[in-house]
Design a protein around this nucleic acid. Sequence first.
DNA 1: GACAAATTAGTTGATGTCAACCTAAATTGG
DNA 2: CCAATTTAGGTTGACATCAACTAATTTGTC
Lengths: 146, 146
Amino acid sequence: MPADVPFSTTLFVRDSCLCLHVQRAARALARRFDVALRPVGVTSGQFSLLMALNRPHPPAMGQVAALLAMDRTTLTANLKPLQRRGSIEVRPGENDKRQRVLALTPAGCGVLAAAVPIWLATHRAVEGLLGEASPDRLRADLMALS
Amino acid sequence: MPADVPFSTTLFVRDSCLCLHVQRAARALARRFDVALRPVGVTSGQFSLLMALNRPHPPAMGQVAALLAMDRTTLTANLKPLQRRGSIEVRPGENDKRQRVLALTPAGCGVLAAAVPIWLATHRAVEGLLGEASPDRLRADLMALS
DNA sequence: GACAAATTAGTTGATGTCAACCTAAATTGG
DNA sequence: CCAATTTAGGTTGACATCAACTAATTTGTC
């Protein structure tokens, strides 16, 4: 017979579970940025992905997946809509033919440029939610978890 | 014509975006708890959901969705696998017939009881990742964001 | 009581997330 | 030089997430 889990245990887990707290914050923040970025036609995740590709030397998939702490197959799925809309280009690697090199197209660069001011304003508002808490401290804590 | 986004801007956004940092931490933590909880056959999200239902008076969907900072329709989708496996029961509300009241079954309670020790051990390990940082402080910061 | 407005939840379609399994290319060891 | 291993990525299936739209119920007002 499975023993019941005491309600006090439930309250303890609900109040202290970092996994739950982080998931909740992740959902709330994603929603907020999704709404703000809708005028330029990207989600918060797509914005982060496009931004990750804006660099002098186009990266391969593995590097990007590691940077975003994302499964490689998730990245594959996330690339599809961006590729379909012509925001990014996928090319085989030159030195290593196993690799897929990911590059922004000019159109993708334009989307990114339009999104940056929106990101700035939204991010300022989000940091405001923290009150006197330091965003740097929070970032450091989150970094330690991933 | 879309101006290029300077690489320095990319680095600034990547380093400071709380949305990205929270998403990364969320993915990493979910993976970690998913792996740990696999022996009892639930994911981290399902664990949080089952735990949210372990209370004296079975709640309606809206309350649970708000507690988890989750869209109502997401909750509907998340209930399906748990319902199929007989971990939870969905009944129409008695006072308000629009409501769907969510309750743990004895089987679901058993799953939850088996998961609690795993959660305890995993959570202790995760708090260890924070080093000298205070889990309470981090929780308070995350709470402010959602 | 009748009826408009607000509340509660479901459905559909697009996308995000990962594990398990698979292929191909590069690297390493003998 | 070649076989075993490692590495980079894809495919499939299950589940998670939300917006937009719809249906049923309750509530507030007259």
